[in-house]
Nucleic acid binder design. Structure first.
Lengths: 215, 215
DNA sequence: GAATGTGAAGGTTTTCACAGCA
DNA sequence: TGCTGTGAAAACCTTCACATTC
């Protein structure tokens, strides 16, 4: 009985973690798993696991636990990783090229279909079997190729302009690696990966260990 | 009058954002900034800004606002980015090599001093001016070189073993790119960058836009 | 007058605890 | 008996509102 309540960011992130754990449990031929086991695997509490899952339905059996395979598939459905997504990547610099070869992406159904850059020397060349296109045509090519998710890996100065072009192509999901706060209209989902910020978090913990709860 | 209360993760992350904004304001020769201005720059509320800062002291002047340069320096101090940190990177694959050239790191005082890999073909070779060492000697070399922060960019199967070696070297801060939940003892700070998880978050939003608050 | 610093209020997330079911 | 599902309680985080200071 899923209620139409807003789901918190943390619940969604934990869903990813449950999913990962369940994939492993399934590989290891476990049939069922209790909220306690699942919680231990991901260093969470059993109540948290049950509450999170309860937002989406009643997947378990009292006295027994959750059926591994079935729960895995249900969560895959909820997360949208039971289908393929067309992904484009803008900015084929250090991070961009690393992402092209990042195996975890393809494994989960995220297919990198298009690459873009603004460097004339790169445009037209092949990168791991994908031709690099001119970012000048970004909006049109995203539309023509039915891209659903775009990854931004350009320098911060160019990120907002690129982002605006992406939004114009009606793309509703953006993953941003540029260390800048992008503005997107309502209805567009934006996630940020900011490595410098994570390092700053760590240095904060090193300097202020009395404030900072362990790891 | 900083109280000895635990600081929330979100406050620490916002501190990084204030810092970035203040660096820019200082470059643009602003002398003072109000909580309202700072909030607008980072899409937050003025009350949030004031509350966050108040955990660490009273940096502003009533009726005037905060002195930009001074606040920037104070936050740099709090975040620990007023000093240099010795960083090592384990795993010189796609992501690892991208990180070596990531300019944002060095700019903030995070100096990559050592590189490690387990691939005999890579060990001993030069990567952007840094020699790649054998991960077999990880613990000893981290100790000998007074490394304070280690970045893990190895495949998930090897991540926990690498992590254990890092902990043995008394390193207290780890940034992990492997899609796995590492176990670290109390007192060690661990941050995770999980790109697959961010993409899953986006696909969740695409599939469940009714649950998912905008961007 | 203008904007900080901060208790108190309000909202959200997590944990508790137990009823309910296999 | 064992473990889920879930209201209620507790903890936590954000916003409000205003006294306070320049």
């Amino acid at each position: 009985m899923p209620k139409l309540k807003r789901i918190s960011e943390s619940t969604i992130s934990r869903l990813s973690r449950y999913y990962r754990a369940l994939v492993q449990l399934d590989k290891d031929n476990y049939e069922t798993v209790s909220s306690k086991d699942l919680a231990n695997l991901e260093h969470l509490t059993p109540a948290q696991v049950r509450k999170d899952l309860s937002f989406f339905g009643s997947f378990g059996t009292r006295g027994l636990g959750y059926p591994v395979r079935e729960l895995k598939d249900k969560i895959a459905r909820i997360l949208g990783v039971d289908q393929e997504w067309n992904v484009a990547l803008v900015g084929i610099g250090n991070i961009g090229s690393a992402l092209v070869s990042y195996k975890e992406f393809a494994r989960q159904g995220f297919k990198i279909k298009l690459l873009f850059d603004n460097d004339q020397r790169k445009i037209g060349s092949n990168h791991k079997g994908i031709v690099i296109r001119d970012v000048a045509n970004l909006t049109r090519e995203l539309k023509d190729n039915h891209i659903e998710i775009v990854v931004i890996a350009v320098p911060p100065q160019q990120a907002q302009a690129v982002c605006d072009d992406i939004v114009k192509a009606d793309v509703k999901a953006i993953l941003n690696f540029a260390p800048i706060n992008l503005k997107v209209p309502k209805g567009v989902s934006l996630r940020n990966e900011n490595m410098a910020m994570e390092l700053e978090h760590l240095s904060f913990c090193l300097v202020n260990d009395h404030y900072c709860e362990q790891g």
